[in-house]
Structure formats: C-alpha cells, structure tokens
Amino acid sequence: MFGAQGWADARHWVLRANVLIPGLYAWLTTVAYPAGESQTSVGARASAYAALAALVLGAVLVPDQPRWARGFGVYGYVGLCLLSWALLGASIGVERVHPVRAACGGVGWALYAFSWGSARRGRVVSEPLAGEIPGRRLEPRQSLPRGTSAVLGLGVLGALVPWLYAWRITHPARAMFAHGAALLCAVILTTAAAQIALDRGKKATRGRPRARIRSAAAPASAVAFLLAAGMVWWALR
C-alpha cells in the first residue's frame, strides 16, 4: 500500500513539520504579536515576516539540503527575529510583556531548539556517507534503569516551577535578577535529576542503603540547622 518512496516522502513531511511547528509557535508568541501592533515600524514588521519566510524555507529544505536548511532555518530565522526585536525597541520592554505569553514564548523557543537538534539525527540519507562503517548498528552495553524517564521528567517539572514563578515578578530590575537566579536553579535541578535518574541503576557505585543515608547526613544536618534557625528568627520577629 505504501512503498519505499511513500515512506521516504512521509518521513520528509514529518521532518519538515517537526522543525516548522515549534518555530512557528515561537514566532507567533514572541515576534508576530509585538510586530503586529499598529505603531510598529515598517523595518521591524518586514524583518519579522522575513524571519517567518526563512523558517519556512529552512523547513522545506531540511530533508534534502540540511546545510542550507540550517542556514535559513536557524541562522537566518534567529538573526531576523533578533533584528525585529531590536527595531521594536521599547515596545517589548519588560514592563509591557505579558507574563503568560512570555512564558509560552520561552517554551516555544526551547521546543524550536530541540526540533533542530532532532533534525540533524533524523536526516534521510539516500546513499552511504564517506567513511561510514558498514554492518549492524552498535548497541549500548547497558540499558537504562527502569523509571529513568519518569525521574528525569519529574526533575524537569520541578525545575520549571522556579523558572515559571519568575514570570510573576513585575518589578523590572527584580524580574531580571529573579530570572537569572531561576534559570540557574532550573539548570542545577535538571542536572541533579539526570544524575539521580542514571545513578539509580548503578548498584556497584551506590553502596548499602545505610551508607547512602550517612553520606547525606552532613547536608541534611545543615538543612535542619538552617530550618531551626529560620523558625527561631520567625518566632522572635
């Protein structure tokens, strides 16, 4: 029903949609909305639409011309979005940005970055590449421990909480400071979650349960001391 050519075409369209949809979402939430306002300059609006054209061109070229696709879809698109923001000036100031739309835009740009990362892996190769070793694909020697994705997913969700909370801060200077701190916290939390998710399967390096609890005794004691000190301070205030 669906020949080899049909599957190749279907994969091409999936690849195109995979890079187009997140980029389009990021563009709609962070570029199109401010550029579409009535008092926007012609240059800002033109660069916003040129960014959209570069994205579409990149998505069209991604299966067959990945290097050109990257040039248009990543460098051209991001560069033109930056140009549009620069020309918009004060109209995209922190005090005029809607928190929910800005948070959605942040998620959109993260998805856009992931989509171009997967585009490189998912590229359809019609002929063997020079230097490619023929034969079966090399399999990893160990499989990931059970529940790795769940633990990592929970960690990422936990990391999103301080980052999303930072969008609720309205004071411009404080908001900037809070975003920096929240981003740092999110990176640290995601790294720790990845470490925990992977180390759960390493029996050789984990040791006995009592040793593991003893190992965490020093930071846990420091937390207990800080919480006690905080409660005393709160009671005396």
């Binding site: 939390l189 390493k202 390096t205």
Partner: peptide, 26 residues
Amino acid sequence: ALYWLAVGGLLLRAAVDMLRPRSGVR
C-alpha cells in the same frame, strides 16, 4: 532569598549524595 537558595542548594546536595555516597563512607 539567600536563606531559601542556601536551603535549596543543601537539599539538592543531600539528594545527590543519597544516590552516590562518597568513597570514604561505609
């Protein structure tokens, strides 16, 4: 803010140490 960020950092350290004890601990 400093207080809560310090508490968070220490809790994170405790969470990671529970998974991977240092070599000296038996």
